[in-house]
């Protein structure tokens, strides 16, 4: 990204866009065309449909002829105390995921990059495996650990230490830890792929000269690996911030087994909307939730980018 930026700045600033220049880049524009057409059809053509969030949708009349109702479809998101809880949960968990999962992914990527041969392939596949398991199954794996009557934790671990059994599925306070753990376990394998690929691309000469200068492994990581990784970390984090208002539906719905008693720490915007609208099937209200999430997500990315630009101009996206 940052290399592309400097190139385009240099090009755009120095020369005017002439027909000759345009002709020279025709093959590149052609290469871009399929992607642009796809983006246009898939991402731009439905945009007028956003209006459905401000209408009382009636299938007989269609989206464009249904009557306008202003912001009425949005009010249900804010009518109760739940509005605060679901917003806090959504942002809080996502912030925790960004920090924990990034740290985990980088750690694992560095460790993997130090390994060689078959064992590396094995570890890489093994830690990627949870990412391929459906949330429903993960929900039952977690249940196998925390089931009150037959769970592994209550029956084996707590008993071993002579502790009382805990009814995990009715005590909300434990779930932030469980969910963050499950999320890390599930996503670390996938997240570390990008970091690992970047790591493998680093010039080995840096490390060789560091070794000659007598740098320890830790010093190599601290002064070579992490600074080189910084642009990647910032980019991936910015992209994650863009989705901070969305939550992994499977993780928050399936893993706590949709338990009402756990809502105070497991209810997020997505699960709230799903549960509320499951009964009513109201297209306008679900669209309203989607619009709200995308607009807040968009603003957050702009703000985060602004902050990044203050700190390190080259790493910012825009």
């Amino acid at each position: 990204m940052s290399r592309a930026k400097t190139a385009s700045e240099a090009g755009g600033g120095a020369k005017k866009m002439t027909l000759k220049r345009f002709k020279r880049f025709i093959p590149i524009y052609l290469l871009m065309l399929p992607g642009l057409i796809y983006l246009f059809i898939n991402n731009y053509m439905p945009l007028p449909g956003l209006t459905v969030a401000f209408k009382k949708y009636n299938a007989g009349m269609g989206i464009y002829k249904s009557p306008w109702v202003g912001f009425q479809n949005f009010t249900y998101l804010f009518t109760t105390d739940d509005a605060w809880v679901i917003t806090r949960n959504t942002i809080g968990y996502n912030l925790a995921f960004i920090v924990v999962n990034t740290v985990m992914a980088i750690t694992v990527a560095i460790i993997l990059s130090e390994l060689t041969g078959r064992i590396k392939k094995f570890y890489q596949s093994a830690i990627l495996l949870p990412n391929l398991i459906s949330s429903v199954i993960i929900g039952y794996l977690v249940f196998a650990f925390f089931s009150v009557e037959n769970g592994f934790v209550n029956n084996s671990i707590l008993k071993l230490f002579g502790k009382e059994a805990v009814s995990w599925y009715s005590e909300a306070k434990y779930w932030p830890f469980i969910l963050i753990f499950v999320s890390a376990w599930k996503s670390v394998g996938y997240n570390c792929i990008v970091y690992l690929a970047t790591l493998m691309g680093f010039d080995r000469a840096f490390y060789e000269s560091a070794q000659i200068d007598g740098a320890t492994k830790w010093q190599q990581i601290k002064y070579i690996t992490l600074p080189l990784l910084k642009p990647t970390i910032i980019m991936l984090t910015l992209m994650a911030i863009g989705r901070i208002f969305y939550s992994d539906f499977g993780l928050f719905y399936q893993v706590p087994m949709n338990q009402g008693a756990l809502y105070s720490t497991t209810n997020t915007i997505d699960t709230y909307v799903y549960r509320g609208l499951l009964q009513m099937g109201n297209i306008s209200m679900s669209a309203a939730a989607g619009v709200y999430q995308s607009i807040v997500g968009f603003v957050l990315v702009l703000v985060a980018n602004l902050v990044v630009r203050r700190v390190d101009k080259d790493s910012a996206l825009i």
Partner: peptide
Amino acid sequence: ASVMALSLCACGGG
């Protein structure tokens, strides 16, 4: 834009 559009269901035509 893709983030925004993805959140919409593709209810074309009417």
